[in-house]
Design a protein around this nucleic acid. Structure first.
Lengths: 161, 161
DNA sequence: TGACAATTTCTGTTACAACAGCTATTTCTG
DNA sequence: CAGAAATAGCTGTTGTAACAGAAATTGTCA
């Protein structure tokens, strides 16, 4: 996530013919910008641990999939983003002993991935700071409006009702 | 943007001790996921033109800054994301003649950037498809709820009221 | 069974973002 | 005015995302 926000609305010159900003585009930009602001905050928090938000997210997915672990393509499926270069993402985390991989016996195409005790310990250290960060970011909105926001975002994810 | 969504809520094993998902984190993930879904849609639309959303955004900023153009650091300031490697981003667009750069006379440190007629023509071709895409993505939400969503997102961008 | 398709993961390449350090120019300060 | 500090932009490097294609394994069906 990484972009956004147009300049001063339509401060154009002669011959411009710039279409007016639609409410839909305004909200689109708003969503992008909000996501960016919030993500950068998490990024700062994770930086001392040399974890990107994506890496952190993978570890959380693996923690919630214990103890059996997951196949690579199952992790991909849970990541919203379609092709996050899973192989090399896992390579880096494995190199740091935060997860382990082993080929599955019955279907030797799939590689089963599971989080290591080191990975779990790292996550445990992060749980509280991350929880607090989210609370600081969004806590002042309040339960009612958070629920409302969530409903509206669900709508936004469903194109053409 | 480019991540998100945890696995099945807390499907954990013995010894897990995973903290429950807070409403704040749920909304955080929701915002990220929504931004990602919408952005990918725009990305698909722009792909045939070999434009990334970031590049498209820069061109729009430059269009709205005609005819004087903008200095590099002014573009950066309008991009939400702090350091988007502006130099090389502009390099690529300049190589395609979509924008032009020239050193400013009175302050020879700054480079003034402005969009070219080719850049304007490209944007003009994209205006209607992009407008329709946003309409398709968010149009069904309706004006009232869009305004509400916008207000809630503004709140979300302001940590600790 | 054997050919072929589907699935899963890996590899190579390109483009880009993040970070740090550099140069050129201007402004500030005594 | 000289020299330090600030400003603007560029360059080198690293890590990662996107894309295409290869390799290994399994499933399907004549």
């Amino acid at each position: 996530m990484r972009k956004l926000k147009d300049g001063p609305r339509n401060g154009r010159a002669a011959g411009g013919r710039i279409p007016p900003q639609s409410p839909e585009r305004e909200v689109f930009l708003m969503i992008q910008r909000t996501a960016d602001v919030l993500m950068r905050d998490l990024e700062e928090l994770l930086k001392p641990y040399r974890l990107s938000p994506t890496q952190y997210h993978v570890l959380r997915i693996l923690r919630s999939a214990r103890p059996e672990g997951l196949a690579c393509h199952e992790i991909t499926a849970r990541m919203s983003t379609h092709d996050p270069d899973m192989t090399r993402l896992l390579d880096r985390l494995e190199a740091r002993r935060l997860l382990a991989r082993q080929r599955q016996r019955d279907d030797r195409r799939v590689i089963r991935v599971h989080i290591t005790p080191e990975g779990l310990a790292l996550l445990r250290n992060l749980d509280e700071p991350v929880r607090q960060a989210h609370k600081r970011q969004l806590g002042h909105i309040g339960g009612r409006r958070l629920a409302l926001l969530q409903k509206l975002l669900t709508l936004a994810q469903t194109p053409k009702a």
